[in-house]
Design a protein around this nucleic acid. Structure first.
Lengths: 191, 191
DNA sequence: CCTCAGGTACCGACCAGTCGGTATGTCCGC
DNA sequence: GCGGACATACCGACTGGTCGGTACCTGAGG
């Protein structure tokens, strides 16, 4: 039998198809065929096609928030913290390009309740990141040339855009890309 | 009668709806109702729902390419040129948030032929922008800390991500936002 | 009276989700 | 150590509704 559990296989197939064709353009039938299960099995584990989509978001956001918390808890200086946040973000994104692509494109399809939950998480991420930049700007470690919130928006914007041009088989390994992006952002914040 | 021509009204309504609900989730019926026309009128002017989508891309890309060519033709120094490219991009994007949002989210739905045409245009934009940065890096005007292509990818990434967080009624006017983003990018390129 | 702009009724395809079923455990009283 | 009650995991034919697109109509201007 297959190594992965049935629900895992279903989510995997769904991510691949949603990333390639979009959520609406992918039929439940295609998902079950790609996962080698039946419709019955899918609806046994997931309440609806939307639930499947939400499951993808949940796991991605969960990983990113955990990384952020870990980095903040380490309590290093601002430049190191910012570098680590960006590197971690770029690397997770690179290894989950499909998830991120689906996420960025179809996020607005969440229903009101889930959208609220998602916004709260994103807000927390954003505020935490911004606080690091603001503190460093206040004590002169970073330049205040550009407001902290714009800097954060720029950094997060780059990462979310990554799935549109990043190719796993491209010339630059994710670690190299992560370092370059971090360098650029830090250069922008340098006094 | 309405001021705008029928096809213009149709495209306008389509952009608004596609941006709000997504292309697939919007029915042709909703578009014609929002535009106060009938299905017959829509199919009189557009061959298919996809044609409508393509029309949105075409006009947006056309405007951006024209702006770029105009800026390059002015032949100013690298820093001014880069600033102008970013400002022009941010401002067009801000005044066409809906178009850009649709574009970023649904671009992958283009058929092979149109996708190829689009990629060629994007490539030209990218290469033109990169050439400016590379030249300035070669003569020492810009730092070569971060490769030119990464810098360009970052700059364009920020702009494409703009529709997800930019609000026309937000505290910062587009010109201010454009200036901040340009400042940040130029700071990242400063020797 | 013919063409062009627009209107309207309708069709065929498709798709998310349902539902009645089976097969395989597993726990428990006796 | 066995029968029966219940649960878990899955199957796949079917349906009710939806939607893009089409065929045909109308009315006005030249």
């Amino acid at each position: 039998m297959a190594r992965r559990s049935t629900p895992e296989r279903i989510v995997e197939a769904a991510v691949r198809l949603f990333a390639a064709k979009g959520f609406d353009a992918t039929t439940v039938q295609e998902v079950v065929e790609a996962a080698s299960v039946t419709k019955g099995a899918l609806y046994h584990y997931f309440g609806s096609k939307d639930d499947l989509l939400f499951e993808i978001y949940r796991s991605l956001i969960g990983r990113q928030m955990a990384d952020l918390d870990r980095i903040i808890a380490a309590g290093e200086d601002a430049a190191t913290t910012v570098r680590r946040i960006i590197v971690s973000l770029v690397e997770t994104t690179a290894e989950s390009v499909d998830e991120t692509a689906v996420f960025v494109r179809e996020m607005h399809k969440l229903d009101a309740e889930r959208m609220a939950a998602f916004r709260a998480e994103r807000r927390r991420y954003h505020e935490t990141f911004r606080a690091v930049v603001e503190k460093a700007q206040a004590d002169g470690t970073f330049s205040a040339r550009v407001p902290a919130d714009t800097a954060v928006l720029i950094a997060l914007g780059v990462v979310n855009q990554l799935p549109t041009w990043y190719r796993p088989d491209g010339p630059k390994p994710p670690s190299r890309l992560a370092a370059e992006i971090a360098d650029f952002v830090l250069a922008g914040l340098r006094p």
